[in-house]
Amino acid sequence: MRKPLSHVPAVLFLIAFAIFWEYGPGYFKIPDYILPPLSSIVRIYGDPSTLSVYWTNTLVTLHEAVLGLVIGSGLGFLVGVVLTESRVLMNMMYPYIIALQCMPKIAIAPLLLVWFGFGLTSKVVIVSLLCFFPVLVNTISGIRSVSADHYELFYAIRASRLKRLYHLVIPTALPSIFAGLEVAVVVSLLGAIVGEFVGAELGLGVLLLQAQFQMNIPGVFAILGILALLGVVFNITIRLLRRKSLFWIAGEK
């Protein structure tokens, strides 16, 4: 439980920060193209035509991120389950998974662009790739945390592999899988934006580059604001999902 007044310091800080942003640039004579005052950024959100452009492009980025998140996390989960169920496959694949995980995967974005074009596909592939590994690694470590006692119980009640997966292994791994998902959610937006930087026709990443070329710095900040909001929404969604699914863990209530 939060104490009743625990939000107050955070709100006070926000107000102070906003005031400083509004009057600081003028006071310190910082030019608009470096740091525009807050009001010039907020004003953009009031302009319907700009807003509708933002909206269209937000949907594009959102589409890429969510699709990639679902595909990448889904595959990470499936591969994690399959690998832990088969010792041979695990021994065969795990060293390469670790090696790939250590590689900065975003570096292959230019290559993916050549392979999959400027449209949705290349971004979804990049995002999937980024989301795949955190979920995979956390699924494996979650499954490895199943206790020997529980395995023995399932042996004693003569459960099939599939029943064991469903009733024991996956629920046990769930907290760890969610930890992976929390990382995946963050990198999904990152992947979508970087993918758009590398080459795209639509999306917030494209808008961001355009605003930068036009030295429209308030525009850049306005788009960053949308991205921050998306990030927060993603994070809250995952946390709600986590709280719903992990009701049995102390501290999740």
């Binding site: 206790s147 529980h150 023995e152 024991l168 863990i249």
Partner: peptide, 9 residues
């Protein structure tokens, strides 16, 4: 079993 080995969910 030694512990109760229940499934918490």
């Amino acid at each position: 079993f030694q512990g109760s080995v229940l499934l918490p969910w």
